[in-house]
């Protein structure tokens, strides 16, 4: 049996991801949009794309970044609604301020996603889940009941994000260290933040189609350098983005992917 690389990670990280963010904010502001398929667009609707589809629109097949024309074909009842970036950035500022009531270790990852490091706020995952429910209640008081979030709790950012994405909308998914490998084995490669179609293709070319295979696979640098014509560090940069999602340990000219990221704001 492969050893669990997560069992020694003492951190407890929460990832909070607003559901259908721009659309939910508009539905909160304007109750006549609630329960309806809406698509948030740019200023010029006919030439625009769907920046966010409401939960109802997603259920009818509308996807983010679809052209408004295509979205209307798929869902004729779709209400196109112009976005209001000022409003969204004010709400983002406010939910991050709400998170800081619980810990000062908050990292805003995108306009609708943040990471909270709860390692020093609670000794265990039960405590973290209680904090998550309290945060959910505070968000409701602060922003209204229509702006909901999916929350994931795990030993690091990458796994917390994967957890929150596993139940949408309004999910709370707790993945303690002993459950991480289960979560990964249930996930597709592209579910992981940082693995897009290009990297998936490269992994596939190496015979890696699942996390189980990825975990036990040592990536010889030569293989990474050669057919894909990218450097190992370039590969890792794509995998890691700007944050240190994963650490690569190079031993005997073999780069082994180890899933043990750290939260950027708390690096010593």
């Amino acid at each position: 049996m492969t050893p669990n690389p997560f069992s020694s990670i003492p951190s407890i990280i929460l990832h909070i991801d607003m559901n259908s963010y721009f659309a939910s904010v508009e539905q909160q502001a304007n109750p006549f949009l609630r329960g309806k398929p809406i698509g948030i667009t740019g200023k010029h609707q006919e030439r625009s794309i769907i920046a966010t589809a409401s939960i109802e629109a997603k259920r009818l097949g509308v996807k983010t970044a679809m052209s408004t024309w295509e979205a209307k074909q798929i869902c004729p009842s779709l209400i196109l609604y112009p976005g209001d970036p000022e409003k969204y950035s004010d709400i983002t500022r406010r939910f991050n301020a709400t998170y800081r009531e619980f810990t000062d270790r908050v990292e805003s990852f995108s306009v609708d996603e943040s990471f909270l490091d709860l390692s020093e706020r609670t000794p265990d995952y039960f405590g973290a889940a209680c904090i998550a429910l309290t945060i959910r209640q505070r968000l409701k008081e602060e922003l209204g009941e229509y702006i909901t979030a999916s929350i994931g709790i795990a030993p690091n950012k990458l796994m917390a994000k994967l957890s929150s994405e596993s139940v949408k909308p309004n999910g709370l998914t707790v993945t303690p260290p002993q459950q991480v490998l289960n979560l990964l084995d249930r996930s597709a490669l592209q579910d992981l933040c940082g693995i897009g179609p290009c990297i998936e293709q490269r992994l596939n070319a190496l015979g890696i189609f699942t996390f189980k295979q990825l975990r036990t696979f040592s990536l010889p640098i030569g293989l990474l350098l050669n057919p894909s014509k990218i450097t190992a560090s370039g590969f890792m940069k794509q995998l890691t983005g700007e944050t240190e999602w994963m650490k690569i340990s190079c031993q005997n000219h073999m780069a082994t992917l180890t899933l043990c990221p750290k939260i950027r704001t708390i690096q010593k």
Binding site: N30, E86, L143
Partner: peptide, 28 residues
Amino acid sequence: RVNLVHSAREGTKRIFYFSVSDAANYFK
């Protein structure tokens, strides 16, 4: 109903927006 209140900077000042509704209309 007052559904949402937010603010935005306009130059040096802060402007407040109230998203409100009655039975038939939404007003900002």
